[in-house]
Nucleic acid binder design. Structure first.
Length: 500
DNA sequence: AATCAGGTTGGAAAC
DNA sequence: AGTTTCCAACCTGAT
């Protein structure tokens, strides 16, 4: 048992020191009560089987950086290995915990854990403080402002937050307290694990986006220094298939909470101030607002990450074809642009937003007619910036299940990529077996005559797969299916109305 | 209740 | 080369 009672800050998706009001509250409380501050992170020992290796690497790096930064405050990170619902009550006793702070999260898995812990905390007289710091706005007050209804268009959402003042992002990097200093016990037991404890590092691809708050701030400042670039930013004009990212890649840092969305917000305001600049929805600020939009929708909608039982989701009779899902996930559809994107995703953990559009449309309403939920599961594994509400929301958008309904707007796996990469350099990088194909056939290698396939050193059907479907034919059939699915949904709605 | 405008970023054909 | 129109007719939100 600890000699001194403790105050806990429970880190979850807020892996940072800056603009962490809940952590600041914990430090203050430790001072006032003369208790010991114990910043914790609860790590699932089975995490390797739950998320992809790139995401795991990003998480471990973020935890290591967090520990380093906490040590600058005289504190440290305590890693607890296990299930929070079982572990926390034990530590409440062992450490004599009287006070716990944490941030507001909306991922149902996190919320479930939190509710169970809250219940036990009440029995054990542990006082809990939660702070909104994962979004710019408090999504629940936005929902309240809309009379509890979910804003289903971006414009509607923007009109709701238009007059809300955003408080400044607090810097606590200078707050050093004596009560932060760990004093007792077997401290090594709580060290941040090394990545090699989970995976053989020789199997990993090179790390393009290292995790952690330090890296997040560096990346933020790098981009914000380019004022002209920030002010001219228009998302639709950025390229999904440039070799180096055409956008900021701040998303993984936002999703893990290495970067405060409020800090990003104010830095953007600062960069735009006094300058002519682009506006939402296409501006960089607009991108941050999309995140807020989906968070609000996710918080206000039952079963947001599912089709069945989700009141805003179109019910569509998708077909779960395992061989389609596998080919898509592995980048073996026979459509080089689609495959390049999926392989970049698997290797690097990040792909451009429009590249996500391409592959999401292809898997669902465009070509393969597989449920968006299947795609969302694979993105959850691979994306460094995986985020519960953004993932479900965007998948519904692209599959024309919610928010977006013009299902005849189908991305062509042949034409779309050509707009920004005529030569197919992106394909040549990520689908190297096609590297030597002439530009005329790089997006459609099946059209190359056998002699050219031979010269290029890759026969279609041998070194690279045949097309999984005929896009030209199937996307038109799928449009018909969408049309009848919509009709069914409409009839069901009308029926419900007439009953009530 | 009924109608209307508008919707982050498609593609192909016709001008 | 850049703009307009069709595809088929969706949805939400405002009036």
């Amino acid at each position: 048992m600890s000699k001194v009672p403790s105050v806990i800050h429970w880190f979850r998706l807020d892996l940072r020191i800056h603009d962490n009001l809940a952590l600041r509250n914990a430090i203050n409380e430790a001072e006032n009560r003369k208790h010991l501050l114990r910043p914790i992170y609860v790590l699932d020992p089975n995490i390797k089987s739950k998320i992809g290796v790139n995401r795991l690497r990003f998480l471990i790096q973020s935890l290591q950086d967090l520990d380093t930064n906490l040590r600058k405050l005289n504190s440290r990170l305590y890693i607890l290995k296990g299930n929070p619902v079982e572990l926390l009550p034990k530590f409440f006793d062992q450490w004599q915990v009287k006070f716990l702070t944490t941030q507001v999260d909306i991922d149902p898995e996190i919320v479930d854990q939190e509710e169970a812990v809250e219940k036990i905390a009440e029995e054990k007289d542990v006082f809990i403080i939660k702070r909104v710091q994962h979004t710019v706005y408090d999504v629940y007050s936005v929902l309240k402002k809309n009379n509890g209804a979910v804003p289903l268009t971006y414009q509607k959402f923007m009109s709701l937050v238009n007059d809300i003042q955003v408080k400044e992002a607090k810097d606590i990097s200078k707050v050093v307290s004596d009560y932060c200093k760990p004093t007792d016990e077997d401290l090594d037991a709580y060290d941040v694990p090394k990545l090699e404890e989970f995976v053989d590092e020789s199997t990993l691809t090179p790390c393009k986006y290292p995790g952690g708050e330090t890296e997040a701030i560096k990346r933020l400042n790098n981009y914000m220094a380019k004022k002209q670039w920030v002010c001219k930013f228009e998302k639709p004009n950025t390229s999904p298939n440039s070799i180096e990212p055409s956008t900021t890649v701040l998303s993984p840092y936002l999703s893990h909470g290495c970067l405060s969305p409020k800090l990003f917000y104010h830095k953007l305001k600062e960069a735009e101030s006094g300058m002519k600049h682009s506006d939402p929805p296409v501006s960089l600020m607009g991108q941050l607002m999309w995140r807020e939009f989906y968070y609000t929708a996710g918080a206000g909608t039952k079963n947001f990450d599912k089709m069945v039982g989700n009141p805003i989701c179109m019910q569509i009779p998708w077909v779960k074809k395992e061989e389609y899902i596998k080919a898509w996930a592995e980048g073996k559809t026979g459509y080089p642009f689609v495959d390049a994107i999926m392989r970049q995703l698997k290797q690097e953990g990040w792909i451009h937003h429009l590249a996500r559009h391409m592959v999401a449309c292809f898997l669902t309403r465009g070509d393969l007619w597989v449920s968006w939920e299947e795609g969302a599961k694979i993105f959850e594994d691979y994306l460094l910036d995986y985020d519960w509400s953004l993932n479900a929301g965007n998948w519904m958008w692209l599959s024309a299940s919610a928010f977006f309904y013009k299902y005849f707007r189908v991305y062509s796996p042949v034409a779309f990529g050509k707009k920004t990469d005529k030569e197919g350099l992106y394909i040549r990088k990520y689908v190297p077996e096609l590297k030597k194909y002439p530009t005329a056939f790089i997006y459609e290698p099946w059209k190359a005559p056998k002699s050219i396939q031979n010269t290029a050193g890759c026969i279609i059907g041998e070194g690279y797969p045949h097309r999984i479907v005929d896009h030209e034919k199937i996307h038109k059939e799928n449009m018909q299916k969408m049309s009848s699915a919509y009709r069914m949904n409409k009839e069901k709605k009308a029926m419900k109305r007439s009953i009530s």
